[in-house]
Write a protein that binds this DNA or RNA. Sequence first.
DNA 1: CTGAAAGCGCTAACAT
DNA 2: ATGTTAGCGCTTTCAG
Lengths: 337, 337
Amino acid sequence: MVSIDEVARKAGLSTATVSRALSGRGYVSAASREKVLLAAQELGYVVSSRASSLASGRTRNIGVIVPYLDRWFFSMVLSGVSSALMKHGYDITLYNITADSDARKDVFETALRRQRVDAVIAVAIELDEDETEHLLALDLPVIAIGGPNPALDTLSMDDVALARLATEHLLGLGHTEIAHIGANPEFDIDFHIPTNRRLGFEQALADAGIAPNPAYLEPADFTVDGGYRAAKQLLGRPGPRPTAVFAASDEMAIGAVLAARDLGYRVPEDLSVVGIDGHELGEFFRLTTVDQFPLAQGERAADAVLAKLESSDEPTAHGELPFELIVRGTTARLPKA
Amino acid sequence: MVSIDEVARKAGLSTATVSRALSGRGYVSAASREKVLLAAQELGYVVSSRASSLASGRTRNIGVIVPYLDRWFFSMVLSGVSSALMKHGYDITLYNITADSDARKDVFETALRRQRVDAVIAVAIELDEDETEHLLALDLPVIAIGGPNPALDTLSMDDVALARLATEHLLGLGHTEIAHIGANPEFDIDFHIPTNRRLGFEQALADAGIAPNPAYLEPADFTVDGGYRAAKQLLGRPGPRPTAVFAASDEMAIGAVLAARDLGYRVPEDLSVVGIDGHELGEFFRLTTVDQFPLAQGERAADAVLAKLESSDEPTAHGELPFELIVRGTTARLPKA
DNA sequence: CTGAAAGCGCTAACAT
DNA sequence: ATGTTAGCGCTTTCAG
């Protein structure tokens, strides 16, 4: 491994100047910089992050904590974080919080404290007080996606508003018999997303003067299969039948579309379906959805963390994440009866 | 940040002994070890990986190179790698090779050379000679998934055999009019997977004495949508029609199932469909598939890399990855005509 | 089995 | 603008 001394020797300068030229900190004449760059190039020198970080306290590495690696949303966020950070020469080390609570504890109590990272991005993890403490005690910039966690700088999604938008879309098309798939308190681990989406749904109905119908609330587990089963229940039960379904995720919405078809209902003629996410599969099914741009969420978190790193004073107000209604083919006006 | 000196002082021992006790390297009396552990515990001491790695040359961090973060297969592999490594106290830093060739170059020429990792796992990336050189020049243990790359220790999937198995399943059910979706040379970037799967398909047919029918070969892009379009072509064209379809991925197979249904064919009565992957969505569609256990692939790569780390002499023969036919509901015997 | 001490390769005052 | 030098916080000989 070629070291900084060799570069210094070759460039005919001191190691200090080489360090300055390479890092861009401190004054270096243009001529010296040239020499250093050339020497480094020719020797194939790359700064050792081990040594550099020990001396400087900076690692150029960001820790990213995610609860799942194998779920679409998190993959997208991670992808966004990664591309944004790589552009700035930062590496990312991954901390996958699992169900195993010992492993989880280990991340906060040991792994993150090894001084391997300059900052932390926590993606959609509900942190308990202890964990929040640990994070704060690191004394590093932290950005959370998906709050709210009043103790942390957070980029949060207004899930109530998201759900209102989806519901209002249906209302605007003339639907009044609207069912909701998703409200399952059991899945409320992640910031009450299911509950908030149900709340938004109910608010929109209330604003339109529609009384909530408990029979139109069907719990499901956020999978295609779950959405399928829920929709079958909704559509198969005797009695009043919804003309539209708002599912709390695109995967459930897709399940609902498939269930409707299997029962002989046409989508959107007989049933309108709207989801939430902007899932790639939604395009194939021409699913109307409220896109929450997970890739952009990741990029934005990365940018926020970099901003905090440059100027630690930055306020980095708790930001709201954008979302947008994408009207495709699974929703339509309520046909006149 | 509490340092090793404080622990040493509190334990009444030298820093050398503390280091030995904590790392498990070198002799330490049980009594001393106790004292050290207690002191470290009470002070909440965690070894600084910066300092430790500079002094020892070990980082307890593995670099993982992946071409995609947002594709199911890679997410699963990554998930497997992550869980296996975390168990052993290793962190993982992620290098996402993108289409951007400058960024790609940067990973091999700079990022990986920063001495941040003890070993590298390369997931299904076709490396050119230059990149392979760079990897080898790191002088670190490297494990590749998805080879073959003769220069690297590789865990590889026998895609020809995988495809044969899928095809033989169909043949065994009595089908002779079998189409294949997937062979698209354009997508051959990743180790000729499409080509190898087509080869396995053709071999199985040949072994059964069936002449290949070019009209039964439909290229597609490995997405649901691609599989859907391909199947529509296959089933919609006038002339002989296949009674079974072997798709080179589960997502394409799902697309084929949906296309068949849309055209009025029943699956599996009128058309059998088999895929490859073991994709989670396959379960919902009751898709028959050849599972390639991506999670296990990741775990196995992690174990292999750890083994190399412990004993650098280990031969770590180029391993073959397992696969298995999962018969579900989209394939059936050819009905007597 | 333990301690003293010499680095690991770089950065950041400080001096010039 | 550049060089000198004292660390950064650990690990690892080497003695004992």
